[in-house]
Design a protein around this nucleic acid. Sequence first.
RNA 1: GCCCUCGUAGCUUAAUGGAUAAAGCAGGACUCUUCUAAGGUCUUGAUGGGGGUUCGAUUCCCUCCGAGGGCACCA
Length: 538
Amino acid sequence: MISDFLRGEIETVLKGLSPAPETKKLKGLNIKLGESFGDYTTNAAIILSTDMIVYSSVVKNPREVAEQIIAELSKNEKIWKLFSKPKMEIAGPGFINFYLSDEALVDELKVVRERVGSGFDFLRAQKINLEFISANPTGELHIGHGRGAFYGDALSNIFSFSGAKITREYYINDSKDSNQIVELGKTALGLGEQYKTFKLLEIIKEMDFSGMEPKEAGALLASKVQEYNRNFIEGKLGVKFDEWFSENSLYESGRVEKTVKILTDKKLLHKKEGEGEALWLPTSEYGDDEDRVVVRSDGTYTYFLSDIAYHGDKFSRGYDKVIDIWGADHHGHVKRIQAAKEILGWKGELKVFITQLVSLKENGVSAKMSKRAGNVVLLEDLVDEFGIDVVRWFFSDKSLSTHMDFDMVLAKEHSAKNPVFYVQYAHARICSILEKAKGVTPDGSGLPDIMKEPAARALAVKISEFPEIVFSIANDYQVHKLTTYAYELASSFAQFYEKVRIVEDGGYNQGALLLAEIARNTLAKSLELLGISAPESM
RNA sequence: GCCCUCGUAGCUUAAUGGAUAAAGCAGGACUCUUCUAAGGUCUUGAUGGGGGUUCGAUUCCCUCCGAGGGCACCA
């Protein structure tokens, strides 16, 4: 990647300066992709300038420092080839802007072309487990689940595409002894109201619970609900999992029991004065607000205990990284599970991402969305109403921490002119053009020529950003950057399309044809990673 | 009361501490004899209030105001 290479070279130059900047300062070094300020831009001279002024006997301003950096970089043959001297400019308070040479841009295009097919190796050999959705088997998925679902799916795709070995996992809270299963059973038997929804009643109607205890009825109903949810997730949402992990299996396999034994053997559990026979794990010594009960006074196990057993199981499978994507209502669990990891010394990294809830607006008034109240908006209804592509885009173009306002009225208006159609339309357009040029294999010789056209060059630059975007997301998990990128890429193509004719009288503009093809493939890959279809005609 | 998020244009959202705060929708004005006008061009319009750190703050810190979520021997 060019920005990566550039960063390395600039750091080398900076470290070679006298006096050398503090490491702290180097952390503020930026290499940014830009449009109005060069293809790449850096603040190297600015972050340094205060040091220079303080330490050097000769006072220098950032622009002077920038000149010095450019002079050093110019001695580097590779840099020279990439940018060439007149293409490094000082601007503003001392930013250095780099303009790629056309040759370098063409080379980069060819790299992207190949990588779109083969993938990257940013996360090569990393084993990562991603657990997401994990909706309770007590009801259908609501729109809040959509965030974790689409985010987790796209992030998994991007990790895989970056060379990691991914396990997508779904945890099923089907422990037979849990209160929620018992409550579900009561509802099944007509003895309770918990989790009662229209759909649940429909399912109950088709089943026979006669003669069952609440516990049994609940377990049976939960398995039915789970089956329904799984079909929905795999079918309508198009989200696939490698592992559907049952909480109950942890009990059946003795994993939970074993966890208690480990904790007991290590003398990690304790009773509390005046708090009965309950056994506590001292999570407060590891950052949690208070200690947590793992074995209740009556000897039964808490959810936290099975969760420890579950995470212990995940880590025992040898992942470099274990990622949990939880809803905002679980944020209070983050500290305790992190504490459990410290206490038990699991090897590897544990990351927990919290997806903020989706709030519902009706006629401008915010309404609550609670699974147990009647006021639920089901994800399935949303998908049926707007289509999976629109819903995925709508959910994926926002950062996870955004408190998303879902206004049904606005969404309906929005869907007609949704950005996702714009992106898909650009893809379909290119396909249509390429169809006309079927049988023509552009050899790439026309590429340097077409770079002289600003709109073509701008498109090429946008395409060359693709590796940077993937790399960036693989490292900071900000999936929404990909929707932004896909839109910008589509927009760059639309502008290119206005300016450059690809199919000409009796022939083709070879450079433009190849550029369009690369744009198409990059666009298709971006959509694929997001789990959104790339239609060939619209 | 404590903890976690969030507050940016009329609306929905962007912006690893950087240059003129960026898009879409909505509003206004143009643009098809041309490979898909679901397109292109131009335009109106914003960082909740107050302090602080910094050469530079939407971003970091403090405080106030407002919104959502969580504070079980439920899951």
